[in-house]
Computed example of a mutant assay.
Amino acid sequence: MTRAVLLFSSNVEANHLVAGIPAAVRAGVIVHQSQELGSSDVVIIAVPGGWQPTRWAKSEFARLLPNVRVAKGNPDQGDLTEGIPIMDGVSVLCGEPVVLANQDAAVHWLAQERQGPGQIRLLNTIGKDIVRATGKTSDGLVSRYLNRPISRAISNIVLKIPGVTPIHATGLAAFTGVLMAACLLFGSAWGLIAGALLFHAASVIDGVDGEIARATKRSSQFGAKLDTIIDGITNLAFLSLASLNLWMQGQFDAATYGAVGLGLLATGLTALGLRSIAMGGPFTFDAVKNNFNANPSKVKNTLASITSRDVYALVFALTFALGFAEWMLLLFALAAGIWLITISTVLLRTTARQS
């Protein structure tokens, strides 16, 4: 039986949330998975006075290390068995584990650590670094330099709340979409502007659930599918209700452009969805994106970048706020037509290959 001791200077430190996961749990996962430190089937959390895990810490240990037994140690009482590696928990999280030779060394280390700079500040910095690393290589310019900084700031805040999971962020994005719909239904110019800005806000918040999922090791197919469905509903709701808003304002040409573009978009999405069902795969609208990825080029990469949600949500927000809704919806209708032609071409080609 292999054991490892993770040493923390206080319960506050051991239970402190590092990107949504208690520090003791996150350090335990690192120790268990590290080839250098060995695979430990017993992890001892040592805290002066004895470790008092929070309910969330217990839950996260059970989720992330279901086959590992967690024990408590108290360096003040001399109950750290000789011969078991004693590691400073915060140094493990920093990626440079400090291994202490024996219990006397551990007590001496604790005395020095208590006199040093705040470990909680260091844990907060580690948490921010973890969230910062959750970005995607596929992020475009808008997402990388505008949306991600905002979504990461939101993620850093909500990950300080015990029990937060990606579904909470997905719910926040859905709630933002509901507020967007309410503003557009208000039927005024200000309602249109507010709805467009909330549409972009929903795009920003859409990044939070993915960041939380990756930071807390909770990524799942169900979560990705639910996120895709809510995104699609929000997109269609914005376009349809924005057109209705303009119709109520008497801007019939703009409303017509929006309705035509929406019809073309819905036709393409329906074709993609039906193809996914026919192929027996999961519900997805990624057939065109997958085709582009299979045969990359500068032109295809540029098209994929400018048609990503972060880009068009920002463009809609800016043009609507500046009073160019009619021109934007005309451009949208033309783009939707081109997109539908592209969809049809890709689907026909893939059908021909499979037959």
Rank of each mutant, 00 (worst) to 15 (best):
V5L: 08
N11D: 15
I30D: 08
Q35W: 10
G38C: 10
D41C: 09
I45G: 03
A46M: 04
Q52K: 13
W56Y: 11
K58F: 13
L64G: 06
R69L: 13
P75F: 03
D76C: 11
D79Q: 10
L80M: 07
T81E: 12
I84M: 09
G89E: 02
C94K: 12
C94I: 07
A101W: 11
A105Y: 06
V107Y: 08
E113C: 15
L122D: 09
L122K: 13
L123W: 02
I126D: 05
R132I: 09
T134M: 02
G135Q: 04
R148E: 01
R148L: 02
V158G: 00
L159N: 01
P162I: 06
I167C: 11
G177Q: 05
L179Q: 12
C183V: 03
L185M: 12
S188V: 09
A189H: 10
W190G: 07
G195Y: 01
L197W: 07
L197I: 03
F199E: 03
H200T: 05
S203H: 00
G207T: 00
A215M: 09
A215F: 01
T216L: 12
F222Y: 13
G223D: 01
A224C: 08
L226R: 04
D227M: 01
I233V: 08
T234I: 11
F238I: 05
S243R: 09
L244R: 14
N245E: 05
L246E: 02
G258S: 05
A259G: 12
G261S: 05
G263M: 15
L265H: 09
L274N: 15
P282Y: 02
P282M: 03
D286Y: 09
D286V: 08
N291I: 07
N291A: 13
V299T: 14
L303R: 07
A304H: 06
T307W: 12
S308E: 02
Y312V: 06
F324G: 07
A325Q: 01
L329E: 00
F332G: 00
F332S: 01
A333S: 13
A333V: 08
G337I: 05
L340R: 08
I341Y: 12
T342W: 09
S344G: 09
T345G: 15
L347N: 08
R349I: 11
R353L: 15
R353M: 14
R353T: 15
S355A: 14
